[in-house]
Amino acid sequence: MSKISPVTGHYITIEVDGLEYKVFYLENGTGQPLVCQHTAGCHNHQWRDLLEDEEITANYRVIAYDLPRHGKSDPPENTEWWKQEYKLTAEHYVNFILALCDALELKDPLFMGSSFGGNAALQLALRHPDRFAGVLAVEGADYSPGFYLDWWQHPHANAAQVCASGTWDLMAPQSPESDRWKTWFYYSQGSEAFKGDLHFYSVDHDLRDRLDEIDTDRCPVVMLTGEYDYLTTPEDSARTAGRIKNGKFIEMPEIGHFPMSENHARFRVHLLEALEMLRNPAAAPV
């Protein structure tokens, strides 16, 4: 007997900075939109368990999209993208997220991103605080250098395995082995986009001198980081949140850089706490 998931998938075509994208997204639930960005070089299956989380989808419309060049979202339809090196910028990334939310006609959405999505959450709070009811920056920081590496695309090594095993240590040993291996598997699929994504993550994203410009009265910010994350450590996120007026930070023990994908059961406890903080910012501890 088959069991059909309530999660559905759709394509939507949008234009961003003159580029036409056919974007794939998964969604489930009703209520306030919760727009979810996967990590660099990956795709929306990282949110597979959140999408089927009955408690959260009872109150939120969870939307997990594939960024163009990831998963089922193709590179731009109207350019010869294969003749250019892919290097994601903060400007284009932010514009893409806004265009997608516009096209989906979302009202007061929350944005949640992990890793380079967590950094994007901070960019959105800074640049477009009136477009989101709040952001959740998972494994994010003001600055995250050091991962824009040629190894991800080196032709003399197996790029799929380098990307997948190169990110393996970002996960906590306590996370279920099957979920870590799913995450590894996703990473074996994204090597062509991974390095270009990391241009944003490690090069173009730098908010060290701009955190005090983030207005959390207009767009509250909650940051969540796992203790096994060696790229964006809890100290990095705590420092970042501490420099944002009324910025909130939650440290997640026994979890790594891919919380929603490596251990949703543990992550959801902290996520529910963070969502409550966004609902009632005044009551939340700093």
């Binding site: 240590d169 970002l170 306590q174 096994y228 060696y230 450590t233």
Partner: peptide
């Protein structure tokens, strides 16, 4: 059996 954070792999220990 369960290494402390940053001692759980060659990447983490090299970075941190």
């Amino acid at each position: 059996p369960v290494p402390a954070p940053m001692f759980h792999g060659i990447w983490s220990a090299t970075f941190r």
